[in-house]
Every structure is written in structure tokens, then in C-alpha cells.
Design a protein around this nucleic acid. Structure first.
Lengths: 298, 298
DNA sequence: CAGAATCTCTGACTAAAGTCAGCGATATGA
DNA sequence: TCATATCGCTGACTTTAGTCAGAGATTCTG
């Protein structure tokens, strides 16, 4: 995980940061620079078309409660939003946009579009496509670098959600469907120390992947329940979950890791092979398995 | 030039702006967030190892003279820089870093590296390479979108510099060298209205390319002296210069444009072909020409 | 050599962005 | 039902980032 970083790559990232902040920053000043301050623009944006609770805005924009209150007051004075107490909890206040507020937001939208257009306009169609593609790649990989993998309680809400999504997907993809009760180790409580470990991958707080490992004294550790959300596949999340589980196995003295999988999960099989797993003879009687793998831990 | 922009590409640019400003912004706050304000950090950075004139810093960072003066005063109070009058012009003041200033700058450097490293660290080596490559592409294309092509006086300093660089390059690349006096139209004054036009391409104020066109009443316009700086080749600058010259020809009622070139300028030839030029029989006796081209203006 | 221009600096402002303590109303858990 | 926590709000404050006018020293230009 902590292989040494390339100085050249660091320099390129820094050049990128510089170029993007100055170029986009200068354009933003130019295009978004209206009478409205950045703070109140962001809040007006967040209030959006359907309204938001004040606390929600505060969390999303990470604003001080007093500061936000003042920003909302000034938007209210301008007739762009109205405030009302929430129906369910009268401590909470809800912000609703007025017609004028919606119009102002649409104007901000237009300015953002104009900013993006100003970036694209001088380029040829081919360059535009290349720029948009490169930007997508940057966004995707910045997201990937934001993913955190850490041990979690398999009984937690996030874990349950991931496992449910996992079972759903297997039911959809396995030719004969999937019933968790017929699979080995249906009881997720085994995946806690000292018998096992469960890890969750998170992106901006949201759980987007999971995996579990069982430790067998003097025998290979056994990986199960690996899953990654569709929306973030191909970002290396599976690899990182697997690495975390292998680390756990290593900590518990395992010399190797085994796992089995279904033939329909082709991306997973490719990922296991790429991670150094080699196919072995069946070592258990998991009914949903077609391939069994093992990897020696270095 | 002003072909309609793709709404999907605009949306992707906006997604990029959002992702980059929040992600990089948050990390910057975290890593660079020292006691030092952004303003004084930027100034300290600019003072660099060898010192700088105050006016130079002001121009580079586009700071108000009074504001910069105050920032320098506070850096001086902290013992990070010293100010002295310039030897050549005693109105000008020169800022020199002290030992402590150099150390502080090195610290800023380390933090910037750490920021870049934090972005790369969670990624696999393959992902790091892809991220750095995509970032390079973004920087390059943002630069390309910053290039401005406009009419200029062929006698101006910038024009002379470009033409000198052009002649130098031809002398290096042509098998038999190059002497501007033996080429057609050595007098650049022809390239001004009403007989012709000269255009310069600029990137952040610096001239990085040029081109000229001569108008011939009732006959094809004639393009000459197209040059693009090595450092910005492959960014579509040549194409944009050519388009500007074609626009000029069109304005002057030309139905087509001709040009000739030397066989050793392979990229140029490829660019002419890609821009719709087709090879024709020699139409003049330019001694340095191997290929003659023509394009009908739509 | 006079007048214009340039360079830096100071003083006097402003607006935005943010921090912190504490208050009053409301909700919640033991 | 009572202590505790939460939510939004207000007042008082700070820092940052600037803007603008003009003064004093110096240099350039006709």
C-alpha cells in the first residue's frame, strides 16, 4: 500500500493544482463574480428547487451555525428564500426558495455553464472531447483516492446495507438465483475478532463496498462477501478491500488466503487473478462456487 | 470556430470544477493551513531563493501595490525577508529571503508535496500513472484554451522574436540551411493591411506563434511564415493561426488560399492536409518549397 | 532642466468569511 | 419529569483580502 511515491508524479500533481486553481479560479471570478458573495451563492444553490433543512445545508457546506444563519437572513431580506419551522421537529427550520430565488439560482446555473463553455470554446471538437475525457478520469481517480477501507461491525446498518445489495446482486446474476441461507457462513457474527474481520469501503461517508475474512489457526484464511457498488467499479476499490483482508490475515499469522467464487462474476475472477490468486482444487462444498482460489502471503 | 458546444461536455467540465475545487480545496486547507495566510505564502514563495523586485512580484501575483507593501512589511517583521533598494533604479525595491525565509519556503514546499502525495498515496501504481497523465492532459488543454490569436504589427518586438525563432528553426531543419533574403516576400511590411495581415498567438501574454497572409485581388490569398513554439506544439495553435488567416482572406473576398512548404516540415504538412489543403502544381518559384497546397474557402 | 511618469509606501476604508459564547425553544432518554 | 442534548439565532469579535487616494523619492523625456 505504502510503496514509495514517484517524485515526477508528485511534481505533475502540483503543476495540475497550480494550473487548475489559477485558471479556473480566475475564470470563476470573472463569470460568477456577481453582486452575490460566494457564501450566499453556495447557500442559495444548496437550497435548490425543493428546499432544505438548515442543518442539512450546514452539514453539506460545513458552515458555522451563526454564519449560516446570517447568510440565510440576508437571502430572506432579498426575497430569495423563506424560512419555516419543520413539521416533524420544530427546532429545525426549513428553507424554501421563492420564485425570485429559483430565478436567481437559474442565473447562477447559466453563469456556471458560461464558465465551462469559455473553457471549451477556443478548443477544436477533438480537443474538447479529450479535455472532457481527461477531466472525467481526474474526477474518477480523485474519488478513488478518497475511498477509505476500514474494519467495521458486520451488524452495523452500513454493513447490512452492503450485504443486502450484495445478496441482491448475486440473486440477479447467478443463473439459479441466490439464497444466503444455503451459502456457507450465513451468520455474519463470525466475521468479528477474534474469529474474523469485516471491512467497509467508504466514499464521502457512504458505504460503497465490503468484504470479510475468517481466520483458521494454522490453515489458510478464508475471504468471503466481497462486494463493490456498481457506481464505483473499476476504481480499484475491490483490490483495496482484498488488500485490507489480506493484511488482517497476515496479522493473524495466516500463510495464505483462499476464496471461492461463481463463474458468472467475471470481473471479480479477473481481479483475483490480477491480485496474485491462482486457481486450486475445490477445498469446500460451497454450493454457489465454481472456482476456488488461493494466494500465498508474502 | 464557434461551433455549438455539447451540453454533455459542459456538464462534465462543471463536474470537474466542482470535484477539483472541493477536493483539492479541502486538502489545501488541511495541508497548507499553517499560521501563514494564503497571501503572504504566495509572496514568500515568489521571493524564492534568489530574491525579486517588488514590482515583479506585484505583476506576477496581480496584487495591489499597497496590499503587497503591507504583506512584505509583515514578512519583514517576522524576519523572513529583507528589503533593499535596487542598485540600478533606486525607486525599485528588492526583496531578499533570509535564512529563516528560505527555511519557511522549504516547509511550504514540503507541505505542497505532502498534499500531492496524499492524493496519490491511496492509489495503485497504475492509477497514479493514469491520474498524472490525465492531469497533464487537462493542464495542456487548459493552456490551449488560453491561447489567443489576433492581428499584430509584423514590426513589433513580439513579431520579430517569433520570426527570428522561425528562421532559426528553418536554418536548423532545412537540409541546405535557410536564408530569409532568398525566400519570397522577405519584407514583412507587406503583411499589413491592405495588402496582407500578420497574426500572433499568445499564451499568458507571451508570443508563441505567428502567421501571415497576402491578399491578391481576384486571386487566391497566400499564407506564409507560419510558426509555432516547440513547447506548445500539438495543442492546435497552428490550426487556429491558419483559421485566423483564412478568416482574413475571406474578409478580403478571396475564394481560396494557397501556401507552399518544405518537405522537412512533416508536422506542418500533416496539419495542412488535415485542415483541408490539397497538393497542387507549383504556382511560384519559392526556392525552399517542395510542396504547394491550396484550399477552397467555404 | 522642467514636467511627466514610475515606484513604493502609508492611511483610511470596505466586504467577506469565519469564530465563539451563550440564549431560548424544543426534543429525548433515563 | 427532569437532566441533557440539539437547533437556530444573536451579538461581539477577528482575520483576510482587498481598494483607493495621495505623498515622497526617483527616473525618464522632450
Amino acid at each position: 500500500m505504502t510503496d514509495t511515491l514517484d517524485a515526477d508524479e508528485i511534481a505533475r500533481v502540483r503543476a495540475f493544482n497550480r494550473a487548475v486553481t489559477t485558471r479556473i479560479g480566475a475564470l470563476e471570478d470573472h463569470y460568477l463574480g456577481s453582486a452575490r458573495s460566494l457564501g450566499s451563492s453556495r447557500v442559495l444553490w444548496e437550497v435548490a428547487g425543493d428546499g432544505r433543512d438548515v442543518r442539512e445545508i450546514r452539514e453539506r457546506l460545513e458552515l458555522d451555525s451563526g454564519y449560516l444563519s446570517r447568510l440565510l437572513r440576508s437571502l430572506e431580506r432579498e426575497g430569495l428564500v423563506t424560512l419555516a419551522s419543520s413539521a416533524s421537529d420544530s427546532r429545525v427550520r426549513t428553507v424554501l426558495p421563492t420564485e425570485a430565488g429559483r430565478a436567481e439560482r437559474a442565473e447562477l446555473d447559466r453563469r456556471s455553464d458560461a464558465l465551462a463553455a469559455a473553457l471549451l470554446e477556443p478548443l477544436s471538437p477533438g480537443q474538447r472531447t479529450r479535455l472532457a475525457d481527461a477531466m472525467d478520469t481526474v474526477v474518477r481517480l480523485l474519488d478513488a483516492s478518497l475511498v477509505q477501507v476500514e474494519a467495521a461491525d458486520p451488524g452495523s446498518d452500513d454493513a447490512r446495507r452492503c450485504l443486502a445489495a450484495y445478496y441482491d446482486e448475486l440473486a440477479r446474476r447467478f443463473p439459479g438465483g441466490f439464497d444466503p441461507g444455503r451459502s456457507l457462513h450465513p451468520d455474519t457474527r463470525e466475521f468479528t475478532e477474534p474469529t474474523g474481520r469485516f471491512v467497509l469501503a467508504r466514499l464521502r461517508g457512504r458505504a460503497i463496498g465490503c468484504g470479510a475474512v475468517l481466520f483458521h489457526d494454522g490453515a489458510p484464511a478464508y475471504v468471503k462477501r466481497m462486494w463493490v457498488d456498481d457506481a464505483v467499479r473499476g476504481m480499484g476499490v475491490g483490490r483495496r478491500i482484498l488488500a485490507a483482508l489480506e493484511d488482517a490475515a497476515r496479522e493473524h499469522g495466516a500463510a495464505s488466503v483462499t476464496l471461492e467464487t461463481n463463474a458468472s462474476l467475471t470481473e471479480a475472477i479477473a481481479m483475483y487473478r490480477a491480485s496474485g490468486y491462482v486457481e486450486v482444487e475445490p477445498f469446500n462444498d460451497e454450493v454457489y462456487a465454481d472456482h476456488w482460489f488461493e494466494k500465498a502471503l508474502g
